[in-house]
């Protein structure tokens, strides 16, 4: 199995992928379908704070926001998870107790991944011990780009093992992989090695989640299911700030993977500001008036 994936078995034509994206994104989502999509997108958000200046206070505020998106408007879903640095896992876990919202932690020397495997595994174990429900690891891009796919694959397998019951999201950091061929190969390697989710980016590198990259990864997920029967989740992260973008991605999922993937179990948005834009859109749809940011909390 490992041998088979260590080569480009699926090539991606960039221009055609962009054209496919353009066509998908030209779908016009209006009225009831738009409202449905906005609710769905909210429930798929991994509300994220990954900054050096993060503090316990900041994380607490974010956790409150996660289950109180806009209390003036009842019936809204919670976001799917909070995504934080390892040292913030305990405080997040405590703050979210009883909400049903997961705690996701980045790990494996996020965002660069430049540490030895021992240190990475220790970090993974420690966040899992601290109660993280989901672990977002980064792959070793340097090894990948130098053709050492076996290393990348082994590392993911070991992290997966260290995760235990926690769900593993594998961040490919596609902005550093550059080509869609690489994105596809890295997706295949990650899924073969045990990823529960594959994720585009750390959010620290530009470009982050671009539409052709997401499409390429969704197609990899689809082909993996055809081949193995397993359903792998997908998480674009970084650069998704508007409700319009979120809906476009829902269209992409629906028409690439089918309605089954339209669920937080199999699809997430890694985002910090997306929730509020969606909330504004929901209010606009409800009231008919365009909204101001002043009316939506910015935790």
């Amino acid at each position: 199995m490992a041998l088979e994936i260590q080569q480009y078995t699926h090539l991606i034509d960039q221009v055609n992928a962009q054209e496919r994206v353009a066509r998908l994104f030209s779908r016009s989502i209006k009225k009831e379908s738009k409202m449905q999509a906005l609710h769905l997108a909210l429930s798929m958000i991994d509300l994220t704070t990954l900054e050096g200046k993060d503090s316990e206070g900041k994380v607490k505020q974010l956790c409150y926001k996660a289950s109180h998106l806009h209390d003036k408007y009842p019936g809204l879903p919670n976001v799917a998870a909070i995504c934080v640095y390892p040292n913030m896992v305990p405080i997040a876990k405590k703050s979210l107790d009883g909400t049903g919202i997961n705690v996701a932690s980045v790990a494996t020397a996020f965002p660069s991944g430049m540490a030895d495997i021992k240190a990475k595994l220790e970090e993974v174990k420690s966040v899992v011990d601290a109660g993280a429900d989901e672990v977002d690891m980064v792959i070793s891009r340097g090894k990948f780009l130098s053709g050492n796919y076996g290393y990348v694959s082994d590392e993911i397998s070991q992290v997966k093992e260290a995760c235990g019951k926690a769900h593993l999201k594998v961040i490919l950091e596609t902005g550093e992989l550059v080509t869609l061929d690489n994105v596809r190969l890295a997706s295949d390697i990650a899924m073969e090695a045990g990823a529960d989710f594959i994720k585009t980016s750390t959010g620290k590198i530009s470009p982050a989640a671009t539409p052709p990259v997401v499409l390429t990864m969704l197609e990899a997920v689809r082909d993996f299911q055809t081949k193995t029967g397993k359903k792998i989740g997908m998480k674009p992260a970084g650069g998704i700030g508007t409700a319009k973008q979120a809906i476009q991605y829902l269209v992409m999922i629906k028409e690439t993977l089918g309605s089954e993937w339209l669920s937080p179990d199999l699809f997430r948005f890694g985002a910090s500001s997306l929730a509020n834009d969606i909330l504004m859109q929901i209010m606009k749809q409800t009231t008919g008036q365009y909204q101001s940011k002043d009316y939506f909390s910015i935790d």
Partner: peptide, 13 residues
């Protein structure tokens, strides 16, 4: 977690 079973596009004439 809330799930939306099917999501269909509304008419957009």
């Amino acid at each position: 977690m809330k799930k939306v079973k099917t999501w269909e596009y509304s008419p957009a004439p």
